[in-house]
């Protein structure tokens, strides 16, 4: 059995760890609130933009539709953008996104499609660099940004547009974690190109005769790239909130486990301390009796 001193050391080291995990949990909780607000307040823009595009797209379907909307008409080359965390210590947050993305990618490869990957987040790069060596187009590290704004999402959108316009890819899918609630984040694959338009709502309403300035096509040309960026941004914001939620949960678990450990070790420590005292007493008494 370990000596008393060793046990004391072990208890104090677990206590130190517990302090750290506790602090991390509280920091994550504070940041979660802020990033949840950010994700919430970015939603109106994304929603409005989507509904405007749905309206417009209903009018310009056919040959005149921009390629970002209509796609290339092929399905051979895929670009998969995987977005997750830059940092660890958040339970299975990154792994669950990566797992969903890998299932998708492996499925496509099995069908003989050409798949290439864009990694957003350091941890994603670390997990995908090996299995998909040679398929990775670009990697992003967002850990240096303190706030997520459009200018963070822009470079990612630029890479996608560049690949698409160079004819290197036909379908672009984005993998991220949709923030449903603090305890539930769902790894989701979102098709970015060709743009998925919710036509249900647009078709049902009385279609008023709109006047366009400049033309419908010109407006759509400028809106679609913007929509791409906005979709990426709102995915990143969702990710951010999800990351902190899952970090908070992970750290809460860690704190609780550390507490259990401390309890167990303290019990063991006290027991062996008492055993030792009893042993010493017996020695003294039997020594006195012998005299």
């Amino acid at each position: 059995m370990a000596s008393l001193k060793e046990m004391r050391n072990r208890i104090s080291s677990v206590k130190a760890t517990q302090k750290i995990t506790k602090a991390m949990q509280m920091v994550a909780a504070a940041k979660l609130r802020r990033s949840q607000d950010a994700a919430e307040s970015a939603r109106p823009y994304a929603r409005r933009l989507a509904s405007v595009i749905a309206n417009l797209a209903a009018g310009v379907s056919g040959d005149g539709a921009p390629k970002l909307l209509a796609g290339t008409g092929r399905d051979d080359r895929h670009l998969v953008v995987v977005a997750a965390a830059d940092r660890g210590l958040a339970g299975g947050f990154t792994s669950s996104i990566v797992r969903a993305a890998r299932a998708h990618i492996d499925g496509l490869i099995a069908q003989g499609k050409d798949v290439r990957v864009v990694c957003v987040g350091k941890k994603v790069t670390a997990q995908l660099a090996k299995p998909y060596a040679g398929r990775i187009v670009e990697t992003f590290d967002l850990s240096s940004y303190r706030q997520l704004t459009l200018s963070v999402a822009q470079p990612i959108a630029d890479v996608i547009t560049r690949e698409y316009e160079a004819g290197e890819t036909d379908v672009v899918t984005l993998f991220y974690s949709r923030f449903k609630s603090v305890v539930q984040q769902i790894p989701t694959g979102l098709q970015l190109i060709p743009a998925v338009v919710e036509t249900g709502e647009a078709a049902s309403g009385p279609t008023a005769v709109y006047e366009y300035e400049p033309s419908e096509e010109a407006i759509l040309e400028t809106l679609l790239p913007r929509n791409l960026t906005v979709q990426i941004l709102s995915a990143l914001l969702d990710n951010m909130a999800g990351f902190y939620a899952s970090q908070m949960t992970a750290m809460d678990n860690a704190t609780r486990n550390a507490g259990d450990m401390i309890k167990r070790y303290t019990l063991e420590y006290n027991r062996s301390r008492q055993a030792q005292i009893t042993k010493e007493l017996i020695e003294i008494i039997s020594g006195a009796e012998a005299v």
Partner: peptide, 19 residues
């Protein structure tokens, strides 16, 4: 400030879209 000139909008304006 519309792309092709400033404009003002009152209630019940005709449907209109611009950059």
């Amino acid at each position: 400030p519309g792309a092709e000139g400033d404009f003002g909008v009152l209630a019940n304006h005709a449907p209109f879209m611009t950059t």
